[in-house]
């Protein structure tokens, strides 16, 4: 009895985790948090920095909100959620400023803007406030990994085509033969972000990775 319950918990944990990767990928399927996705996908470094920030905030807010969600009356639900999220974001902001100054600089206002990232409030409302702490952790991890996959895809394409080379964490990985001299700068410009996400989304629809609406 106890054992089968434990197994089903594991199975459910796995299910909540994997759904965030593709089936309800926050960027390509739920289309949440577009602003940071497009803005910070200019380099792999920025993408990973943003992922780290989202991971800490989403994990924290999902844990806290799933733990206290029951005691929060409906009328103050949103204000309380917002205060919790804003506090976590400020903590991340200060920690990044102190320990990862370069990432802090290049993320700019998109680090504090994690507060209004629809992914976080969306998960708090739609999932964490109704589910247990354990599943909320699974949900947070899954959504973050899904977010990271999308960000890495976008930033890899944009950085490689837009600068002609790939540098991550100060390590130079490779330079493309012709593009290294003449990079296609449009990919690194804001316009490039719209182009790449539009084409990727169409590609995923065409190949059936994500369902049509």
């Amino acid at each position: 009895m106890d054992r089968s319950k434990k197994e089903s918990t594991m199975a459910r944990f796995k299910k909540e985790f994997t759904k965030g990767l593709i089936i309800s990928n926050p960027v390509f399927v739920l289309v949440l948090g577009l602003c940071p996705t497009l803005a910070v996908s200019t380099s792999i470094d920025n993408a990973l920095g943003m992922t780290l920030a989202v991971l800490i905030v989403l994990l924290g807010s999902n844990i806290i909100i799933s733990a206290i969600g029951r005691f929060v009356p409906n009328i103050t639900r949103i204000p309380i959620f917002i205060v919790i999220i804003a506090t976590l974001v400020t903590v991340v902001n200060l920690l990044f400023h102190a320990n990862l100054p370069d990432t802090y600089e290049s993320l700019g206002i998109f680090l504090p803007l994690v507060v209004v990232n629809c992914i976080i409030l969306g998960r708090a409302e739609a999932f964490a406030s109704k589910n247990s702490v354990v599943y909320s952790i699974a949900d947070a991890l899954g959504i973050t990994v899904g977010f990271m996959l999308a960000l890495l895809m976008l930033s890899f394409i944009r950085q490689v085509l837009g600068t002609g080379s790939l540098t991550a964490f100060g390590i130079h990985c490779f330079t493309l033969p012709v593009l290294g001299e003449h990079p296609i700068s449009i990919f690194i410009l804001p316009a490039g972000a719209f182009l790449v996400i539009g084409l990727l989304m169409a590609l995923f629809k065409r190949t059936g990775v994500i369902k049509n609406d």
Partner: peptide, 10 residues
């Protein structure tokens, strides 16, 4: 839907 909207935005 969205993909063509993104291209337009570009």
């Amino acid at each position: 839907g969205l993909p063509i909207a993104f291209i337009t935005a570009m």
